[in-house]
């Protein structure tokens, strides 16, 4: 199990990538910053960075509307 934004619990599986998590949560906004634990993940690495089990992931959306 991994936890995203201390809000969503997502079942972990072998080979789960950052991109898989984003797809699962339908996080498609352009201005996001992803961290795994304390480590920042660059956008070009979303597809080939795997998420370790039990990891706390944050997907920070930079949006202020209006």
């Amino acid at each position: 199990m991994i936890r995203v934004n201390n809000l969503h619990d997502i079942p972990w599986r072998e080979g789960l990538t950052v991109q898989d998590v984003l797809d699962h949560l339908k996080y498609s906004y352009a201005l996001i910053t992803v961290t795994l634990g304390d480590e920042l993940v660059e956008p070009e690495r979303y597809a080939d960075t795997s998420v370790p089990d039990g990891c706390a992931m944050t997907v920070f959306h930079l949006a202020h509307g209006g």
Partner: peptide, 19 residues
């Protein structure tokens, strides 16, 4: 109720930054 004072939806419900 217009948004030019505070628009906090993403900070709050998506990012869970201000629990």
């Amino acid at each position: 109720p217009q948004h030019d004072e505070a628009w906090l939806i993403f900070m709050d419900m998506v990012n869970n930054q201000i629990p």
